[in-house]
């Protein structure tokens, strides 16, 4: 199993409907199967792209792999340290500046203080925040927050990156730079799980593409065949 960094087996995740009416219906538990019997394996040094419409379960899958959600059924095996970049800038405090936020965020995901201190300048430099780094985060644009989140997670010496459509708000230069960073990361034998709606990039970057719809695995395979299938679905 060591060659795999993430192994997901028969994973299901159910979200209950929160309406009080449903408390009466004892037999039928109403809600949504956000993930329905998903199995996927990702090898070390590979990138898995996850595509699908909004609400298809992409984020839920990443969150469950990150250990934020508990699986209702099935199992998840993770070999290595995970750096999650889920949702833009959540986990950041708007009243603190970039440096304070990096420290805060890093400590939260379990990076020792010393290690963080030595990397803080690299993070700010990669995010190209420059003079903004002393500014409170409430003055940042969504793109700048995303840069900070992305740079923090990248500099932290993780083995598996979980990236949830975070680059969509970055400008073109930063996106290019991020994809280069992805390549370097992969070359080091590390793993990336990446959800996205921008399909062009994953043609040459992803080793496998997973297509989800309504929580079900529609297809997994090479970028070409899966993206073709997705394009067909879009036309229907």
């Amino acid at each position: 199993m060591e060659e795999y960094s993430v192994v997901v087996q028969n994973l299901s995740k159910f979200f209950k409907s929160s309406s009080i009416k449903n408390l009466n219906s004892k037999f039928k538990q109403k809600g949504i199967l956000a993930l329905d019997d998903i199995s996927v394996k990702v090898k070390k040094g590979q990138m898995l792209a996850i595509i699908g419409f909004n609400g298809s379960g992409k984020t839920t899958l990443l969150r469950t792999i990150a250990g934020i959600y508990e699986p209702d059924m099935g199992s998840i095996e993770v070999n290595g340290r995970i750096a999650p970049i889920l949702q833009i800038g959540t986990g950041f405090h708007l009243e603190l500046n970039a440096k304070e936020n990096i420290m805060n965020y890093g400590l939260l995901i379990g990076i020792p203080k010393k290690e963080l201190k030595s990397k803080i300048d690299n993070i700010i430099e990669f995010a190209e925040l420059g003079e903004f780094s002393e500014l409170k985060l409430k003055y940042y644009s969504a793109g700048m927050r995303a840069r900070l989140a992305f740079s923090s997670a990248l500099q932290i010496d993780a083995d598996i990156l979980l990236v949830d459509e975070i680059l969509a708000v970055g400008d073109r230069i930063f996106r290019e730079k991020s994809f280069e960073a992805f390549s370097d990361f992969i070359k080091k034998g590390k793993t990336i799980l990446y959800t996205t709606h921008s399909l062009d990039k994953i043609y040459d970057m992803a080793d496998q593409v997973l297509l989800l719809n309504h929580g079900k695995k529609i297809m997994i395979g090479s970028p070409n065949e899966v993206i073709d299938e997705y394009r067909k679905m879009t036309k229907d």
Partner: peptide, 10 residues
Amino acid sequence: NRGILQSVKI
């Protein structure tokens, strides 16, 4: 701390 709870395992 919704944001933190939803973005990292803690």
